[in-house]
Design a protein around this nucleic acid. Structure first.
Lengths: 232, 232
DNA sequence: GAGTAAGGCTACGCACGAGTAGGTTCATGG
DNA sequence: CCATGAACCTACTCGTGCGTAGCCTTACTC
């Protein structure tokens, strides 16, 4: 049995006594459309992240955003369209953060290191964003998982190219396509490590990136024998 | 506008003309409770896997199972309890398959190899089972993600011990707790590779396990220079 | 200072789906 | 051959939540 979830009304009646732990934006008036759209998306990401797509109600989103429901429909369309908009925005942000950190002209292991680090930093600072992307988008069926697939495609593209470039100098250079499953594994390892991190806080983003770097760059075979990878 | 959904009566009347492309189990009668419970769980896993927890309807599950809704409530309780029962059963099955494959008295890399291989074999043969476990349980909130957390805990326990044992002979032996993040990363890498595999079929379970084994045991550092891991 | 459009709202219709009330049929043991 | 209960059903109730109809109100333009 689930403990009966507090409705918004329940909580707000409590709030008089407790402190306001929720982010119900106070109603401001007559703001330009672009600002409202941002506020709505912010609220939607939070609510979708906390509840999941289906359980999340447009009423709660509108309340959190501090605006009435019809405005959401006017500006961003149906619940589905709103959710897709959330996924797109958050995916772009995360990808941009990583791309920026990776840079262009560094040694492959350095690029990987920076990419991983920025990934952990980003997920640390944007929990809701990550939850919507990683969990919710995946779990909902076709219209949405497609959006996520596009993000993964781009992330894997970035990594595949990076890895392939790393093998360029060797006697068996690889094509980016051959590196795809490795990129997939790396993305998954990162995602999963974030989950572990959430349940085991007290580690820095650098530390997390380092662990993953060691795993994928050195491998257990080396780690077991005490050889590890260090930045710089 | 959504096309008005067919009611149960509508569909069953149609089925005479079209072919039954759905797995609607034909109604058999007077079966013992234990058999019905299995049928219901089977149906529930399929429907939850395809639709997700919230969108899945008890009506559809009952139809797929070939039994009426009140029986589900009588035997397995509410929708939530049914979902939890699904997660538990599938988690146990997968874990048991892996535990059996890993065995007890082998070299660590061989144990890992066998565990990975059985994991990929299992997910290949039980898609729905995997979808419920990996995707749906994660995405739904607290009561369910807790169930999944328990599975991950056990999987990570298994791996951590295995990895720690691998370092026993080295000059820097590790405790299982220290290996936890690596185990988490490995689990995630495996999960993600399964997703990649589904979208890129035409690989054997052995091949997939080999890729992951190479990644985590050898690491890119070795792979880049042409050193790879082989079974046996 | 009238007209128009953009920002904003309350209050509802309507469909869908969890869960149940209340019944029927069949098998077994006394 | 009657009774008890297990297996099984149809047909509801009732809450919840998406999406909208219809209506204000402020700001800017001509």
């Amino acid at each position: 049995m689930i403990a009966p979830a507090l409705t918004w009304q329940d909580r707000s009646s409590v709030r008089g006594e407790m402190q306001a732990d929720e982010q119900t934006r106070p109603r401001t008036k007559r703001l330009p459309r672009s600002v409202r759209e941002r506020q709505i998306l912010d609220a939607a990401v939070d609510v979708f992240a906390a509840q999941g797509f289906h359980p999340a109600s447009m009423d709660e989103i509108s309340e959190t955003a501090g605006i009435s429901k019809p405005m959401i429909y006017a500006y961003l369309g149906s619940k589905e369209e709103l959710f897709v908009a959330c996924i797109r925005r958050e995916a772009d942000r995360l990808l941009e953060a990583i791309r920026g950190a990776v840079g262009e002209d560094l040694r492959a292991d350095q690029q990987l290191w920076r990419g991983l680090r920025s990934f952990f930093e980003y997920t640390q600072e944007h929990r809701s964003s990550w939850a919507v992307l990683h969990r919710q988008a995946l779990a909902q069926g076709e219209p949405f998982s497609g959006e996520l697939a596009e993000w993964r495609r781009q992330a894997m593209e970035l990594i595949s190219v990076l890895l392939a470039r790393a093998t360029a100098a060797s006697d068996q250079p690889m094509q980016p396509e051959q590196m795809q499953p490795f990129a997939a594994a790396l993305v998954g390892a990162g995602e999963s490590l974030v989950d572990w991190w959430i349940e085991n806080p007290g580690h820095t983003a650098d530390g997390m990136a380092m662990r993953l770097m060691n795993l994928v760059w050195m491998g257990f075979g080396d780690l077991v024998e005490g050889r590890d990878w260090k930045p710089e």
